[in-house]
């Protein structure tokens, strides 16, 4: 099927969404996606940042679609013409969505562990306005612990539901979800229970903002001071392929390997989720084989020109 996005034509499989077609093209025709996560079936449609204009539905029915559509959950038709960055309407409405997302956001970036790799920060830079028009009292929640490894700052949550899908798909069903409605909706575990599952740490990796953070890393360092290194270990629970974020000889934190869109990469054909042992309990270079530097290929503070030096050979057992 042929689809044209911002005047660039591309051939895709039937059933592809507009967003994924745009990702095939790459670059700045790709709409921002705060809730869709390709590795988590069922996600998407909620944040509305990926809205695009469909200028022609298909060759068979070339009428434009009256409303903007969520590109992450709309499949392409043959001959569809989509406008993303070339549409003023998209620009204005996306600005509106960003304003809504930021309305109740605490903007506590200076003390937030996510700062520097936060998708909401990036979105704010690109589509936000300089000044907030929100003059009301912001809603607040107390931070809670989801088990002894994960901290939930509900104030920062954008309710993308990604962590809920992780919980549903990787851990016991329906222990973690959304309580209450509307503005008062909040992420929570079943009566503040711990999520004790070997893979719960992945919720931190999918969270686009600083709502779910790693308690073993909190306030240790700003992410842009750390050196990301690709490393492997043999693990019988997960793929054992991670990124170590190193400061000197210390491993400050461990995350899964993420792509341009902040999604955990496939490793050997499967999503490279990490188990909690690898993520939280192996903060020691002797437990890993470092294979090289990790290039962080994202349009964000974290990738600002610091990883130019590449190490040619894999280093075995540093320290």
């Amino acid at each position: 099927m042929k689809v044209t996005i911002d005047d660039i034509e591309i051939d895709v499989e039937p059933g592809t969404t507009i967003l994924n077609a745009a990702r095939k093209i790459g670059g700045d025709v790709v709409p921002p996606a705060m809730c869709y996560y390709s590795k988590l079936p069922g996600t998407g449609g909620k944040c509305r940042t990926c809205l695009v204009e469909v200028a022609a539905g298909s060759t068979a029915d070339p009428r434009p679609m009256p409303k903007l559509v969520a590109s992450c959950s709309t499949t392409v038709m043959d001959g569809m013409i989509v406008k993303n960055k070339t549409s003023q309407r998209v620009h204005d409405n996306r600005g509106g969505v960003v304003e809504f997302l930021l309305a109740n956001h605490p903007l506590d970036c200076p003390i937030c562990d996510q700062a520097g790799e936060c998708h909401l920060q990036d979105l704010g830079y690109e589509h936000g306005s300089e000044k907030t028009r929100y003059e009301e009292v912001r809603r607040t929640f107390d931070p809670i612990d989801i088990g002894n490894k994960i901290k939930l700052h509900m104030n920062r949550c954008i309710l993308c539901y990604r962590c809920v899908f992780v919980a549903n798909q990787l851990t016991e069903k329906r222990v973690h979800g959304v309580m209450n409605r509307g503005e008062h909706a909040e992420i929570s575990t079943y009566i503040e229970n711990a999520i004790d599952n070997d893979f719960s740490g992945n919720m931190i990796d999918v969270c686009p903002v600083g709502a779910l953070t790693d308690r073993t890393f909190r306030f240790k360092s700003r992410v842009w001071f750390l050196k990301p290194m690709e490393a492997e270990c043999s693990c019988d629970k997960c793929c054992g392929k991670a990124v170590l974020w190193v400061f000197g000889n210390e491993v400050a934190r461990i995350t899964a390997r993420k792509d341009t869109y902040g999604e955990v990469e496939d490793i050997d054909g499967k999503t490279g989720w990490l188990c909690n042992d690898c993520r939280f309990d192996k903060k020691d270079l002797t437990k890993w084989t470092v294979t090289g530097p990790r290039v962080i290929n994202r349009h964000s503070v974290i990738s600002q020109g610091k990883y130019a030096t590449s190490i040619d050979k894999p280093i075995k057992r540093i320290g």
Binding site: V97, L101, L159, R181
Partner: peptide, 22 residues
Amino acid sequence: YAHESCGQCSPCREGTGWMEKI
């Protein structure tokens, strides 16, 4: 509407609450 919004999508969740306050 602010009370009854399910809170799933950002424009409705944040917008209804904001409008109510104004």
